[in-house]
Simulated scan of single mutants.
Amino acid sequence: MSLNEIDLNAALLTELYGQVLVDTGERAPAKVTQSREPVSPPVAEPPPVAETISQPAVVPAPTPKPVTAPVPEPAAPFIAAAPPTDDDWKFLGKNAQKVLIVVDYQSALHIPDEDLGFLTQLLAACKLNLGDITLVNFLHYRQTSYQAVLEKFGSRRVILFGLDPVQWGLPINFPQFQQQAFAGCQFLHAPDLSAIKADKLVKTKLWVALQPFFGL
Rank of each mutant, 00 (worst) to 15 (best):
K98T: 05
F78K: 15
A125Q: 14
Q143Y: 01
N129P: 10
P42D: 05
V166K: 15
E45H: 07
V49F: 13
L122D: 06
P29R: 00
L116N: 05
T24Y: 07
K98Q: 11
D104I: 01
A75K: 04
R27D: 08
T68V: 14
T120Q: 13
T68L: 13
R157S: 08
P56E: 03
L163V: 07
K94F: 09
A82T: 09
I111Q: 02
V103W: 00
F138A: 12
I79N: 11
K94P: 11
H140D: 12
Q143S: 12
E45N: 08
V158I: 11
A80V: 03
V59Q: 11
L100Y: 00
P62G: 04
I159L: 14
L163N: 13
F161H: 08
N129Q: 07
K90S: 09
E151R: 15
S40C: 06
Q121M: 12
K90I: 14
L109H: 14
L135S: 05
R142A: 09
G131A: 10
P112Y: 00
V149I: 13
E51R: 15
L109F: 15
T63F: 05
P70Y: 00
A75D: 11
K127D: 15
D86V: 00
L92R: 03
F138P: 01
P56Y: 03
P72R: 03
G131P: 12
A124L: 12
E73N: 04
V43P: 05
E37F: 11
D132A: 07
I133V: 15
T144I: 12
N137C: 05
D88A: 06
E151C: 11
S155A: 15
P62S: 08
T68E: 13
K127H: 13
V103N: 07
R156H: 15
G93H: 01
L128N: 07
D87V: 00
D87K: 00
W168P: 06
Q121H: 13
D164M: 09
Q97S: 10
D113F: 13
A124P: 01
V32G: 08
W168Y: 11
L123R: 09
D86N: 00
Q34G: 04
F138T: 05
V166T: 15
V58K: 13
L160Q: 04
A44E: 09
E37P: 00
Y141Q: 02
L122P: 13
R142V: 06
R157T: 01
G25Q: 03
L122Y: 11
I159R: 09
G131F: 03
T63L: 07
D132E: 06
D87S: 09
P74I: 02
F161L: 04
Y141W: 04
I53F: 13
K90H: 07
P70L: 02
P38A: 10
I79G: 07
Q106V: 01
I53H: 13
I79A: 14
K65P: 00
L160T: 05
